[in-house]
Design a binder for these strands. Structure first.
Length: 652
RNA sequence: GCUGCUGUAGCUCAGUGGUAGAGCACUCCCUUGGUAAGGGAGAGGUCGACAGUUCAAUCCUGUCCAGCAGCACCA
């Protein structure tokens, strides 16, 4: 601690410290250490904060000088400064374009522009070229702190209305930093590189252009957003582009076609035509879920698809979600008015109807009511995506009717149930999000305290850490969401556990308590997979089509090498089928190479080739998907092995 | 829903103001081949739908439908 306020002490990562005049910049500190460091430096870490090399340091601090070797700050600065460089390139090419915002995102950045003409792919090439020119200029970066009025006046004079709005939105206690490289100016809090020449001209790429609302608000103007990706060097960029190609190869829409799982067509947008192969996956998964649910104390029900609007009015869906419901109107000659129904968008109101039949006792609770409920929602056209976001789908839905006291134990029980299923399905990376009370809500703070605590405690009981998402809960109650991470690192929110004191109230559900009085039950909405359509789509991409044997629609193909082996092929198929293996014969007049290629592309886990040698020895030549070696196995052995591997995990 | 792009054979894609082509898949023939495409022949299309411009539209214009990317949405 230096006593003289004009002197400060900076401590380096190695523990040594040096004194400097207050207001020293990291650039000066770096220069003080070595000439080469001064040149290589890109930014600093000052008391844990990412610090521009030009920002003065006014008090004692820990300091570390960053170079391109420090991955996180390097990528941050590269992507950030490329956003500025891109904005400058655009304005140099088209001076009338207005700039807005350009943040760093995963793998890169974007920048939103206001321009009448749409950007074309050719424009992106021209912008990239201009960006490289700007990088080569090695223009130093300069920042200044301005006062608000000056910044507003400046942007007004330049006609940059979006920037005016941004400046006005900056909280009064925050500095307004103005940024330049060359003569080009932007509003930016930084930090930044020393000069544009520090940017890797060969390690970025402009990817796409798309519309985006100003400030994310669909009532405001639509801007044009250009996306870019950037890395520290060319190899990293190439690796990223290769990864994108790999992800494209996993696309469930492409694999769905190649594996003959399903198709979709214009006449039924957002709805799936399941083919035999795809439906096998679906029913296999559903059978598994049904067994798991039964074992966990659920009863299964089934409820109507077409339900009169009266029920949706009572549940509140008609008012709140009417626009997203499929309406079915029926004209009846004898009726005074036409009957208006809606296809059910969710199952809960129907489940309450079942609950409401007869008088329920506290002894009936908790009542776990499950349905593989077919739902239809009129999703906005732009939201549809393969079988992942559809208008007709089936949830692995259930509602647990319980008392307030039972919420915690039921929630914990559900988390364990879900954990077992994710493990069976091959997902070991998943996390829990706890969404808490939003600003607009109903119910007292005490009741929110209790509900949030119940969910948090349930996570603790199940031994699962959770992240809190403040204000993300529904207006009536908090919820848990279960997010799993797939094989290529993408997150999918699948499971959910939503508390609900609201719907039992609206639909007047009650039970008789031990005290002989009527009480309102709580409802827990819960799902593990979410929807079968989405979950299967996600699994196809996760496994790149190579589903675990028990879920693979075609588990084995027995292929003849010569037609004299055909009879034996049929015998092998029959033996496999008898053992419960989904097996097919391929005795087409084609070479074995051709058959192997076709079934490999079809992602069949086991190809059993049979020639005269196998016929004589009563063996098969087994080739597993993804391997290019083969193995000779006796018929009995291969039947036993494939049957065992094809057994669902809960039946092993 | 919004912005942009796209829509030609089952799939992937060429192409033209004078009503169309390739490869693969499909059917048939030859071939019986030992682990990722053997050879030949044939069949297959209201060029997304509807209007308009034109002597003539798959091609140009408009509207609609669907798909793709992003945004917004996701009870």
């Amino acid at each position: 601690m230096s006593l003289d306020t004009s002197r400060i002490s900076l401590t380096f990562p190695d523990g040594n410290s040096r004194d400097y005049a207050a207001g020293v910049t990291p650039a000066e500190v770096a220069a003080d250490i070595s000439k080469s460091l001064a040149k290589k430096a890109i930014s600093a870490k000052v008391d844990g904060q990412h610090w521009d090399l030009q920002w003065p340091i006014d008090a004692d601090a820990k300091i570390a000088i960053n170079t391109m070797a420090d991955e996180a700050p390097a990528l941050e600065l590269i992507r950030h400064d490329l956003a500025h460089v891109m904005a400058r390139a655009v304005q140099e090419l088209w001076p009338d374009v207005k700039v807005t915002i350009g943040p760093v995102i995963k793998d890169g950045w974007y920048y939103d522009f206001d321009r009448e003409e749409p950007f074309t792919p050719e424009d992106l090439g021209a912008i990239e070229k201009k960006m490289k020119e700007i990088i080569n200029l090695r223009d130093p970066v300069r920042t200044e702190v301005w006062d608000r009025d000056r910044a507003i006046a400046y942007y007004k004079a330049n006609g940059e209305n979006y920037k005016v709005e941004l400046v006005e939105a900056i909280p009064a206690d925050q500095k307004i930093r103005m940024y330049w490289h060359g003569d080009w100016q932007d509003l930016c809090r930084g930090p930044h590189l020393q000069h544009t020449g520090q940017l890797p001209a060969d390690a970025f790429k402009l990817m796409s252009v798309a519309g985006a609302y100003w400030r994310g608000d669909s009532n405001r103007p639509m801007l044009q957003r250009i996306y870019g990706v950037a890395f520290r060097n060319r190899d990293d960029l190439k690796a990223h582009l290769t990864m994108l190609e790999e992800a494209a190869k996993r696309d469930h829409r492409k694999l769905g076609r190649e594996m003959d799982l399903f198709h979709m067509q214009e006449e039924a947008p957002g709805q799936v035509f399941w083919h035999p192969n795809g439906w096998t996956i679906y029913t296999t998964l559903q059978d598994y879920m049904r067994r798991k649910q039964r074992a966990d104390g659920y009863v299964e029900v089934n409820t109507p698809q077409v339900v009169n609007r009266k029920l949706w009015e009572a549940s509140g869906h008609w008012d709140n979600y009417g626009e997203n419901m499929f309406i079915v109107e029926v004209e009846e000659d004898h009726a005074r008015e036409k009957t208006v129904n809606a296809l059910k968008p969710m199952n809960c109101p129907c489940h309450v109807q079942i609950f409401n039949v007869g008088t329920k006792s506290y002894r009936d609770l908790p009542l776990r009511m499950a349905e593989f409920g077919s739902c239809n929602r009129y999703e906005p056209s732009g939201a549809l995506h393969g079988i992942m976001r559809v208008r007709g789908f089936t949830q692995d839905d259930a509602h647990i009717f319980c008392t307030a006291d039972q919420i915690e134990a039921e929630s914990a029980k559900f988390i364990e149930f879900l954990a077992g299923i994710y493990a069976d399905l091959g997902f070991d990376k998943w996390r829990v999000k706890l969404s808490t009370r939003p600003e607009k809500r109903v119910g007292s703070d005490e009741s929110w305290d209790k509900m949030e605590a119940a969910l948090a405690n349930a996570c603790d009981m199940a031994g699962r850490p959770y992240e809190i998402f403040e204000g993300e809960g529904a207006f009536y109650a908090p919820k848990l969401e279960f997010v799993l991470t797939d094989a290529i690192g993408r997150d999918w929110q699948c499971g959910t556990l939503q508390l609900d004191p609201n719907l039992p109230e609206r639909l007047d559900a009650d039970y008789v308590g031990a005290d002989g009085e009527r009480h309102r039950p709580f409802m827990l909405h819960r799902a593990v997979l979410g929807s079968f359509e989405r979950f299967i789509g996600m699994m196809i991409e996760n496994f790149a089509g190579r589903l675990p044997m028990w879920l693979a629609p075609r588990q084995a193909v027995v292929a003849s090498i010569v037609s004299d082996a055909d009879d034996y092929v049929h015998e092998v198929v029959a033996a496999l089928k008898a053992a419960g293996v989904r097996a097919e014969a391929d005795i087409r007049n084609e070479k074995i190479n051709y058959k192997v290629r076709e079934h490999s592309l079809g992602k069949v886990p086991a190809i059993l080739a049979v020639g005269m040698k196998e016929v004589e020895e009563r063996t098969v030549s087994l080739r597993r998907l993804g391997e290019n070696r083969t193995e000779t196995v006796t018929l009995d052995q291969v039947v036993a092995d494939l049957a065992a591997e094809g057994t669902p995990p809960d039946l092993r």
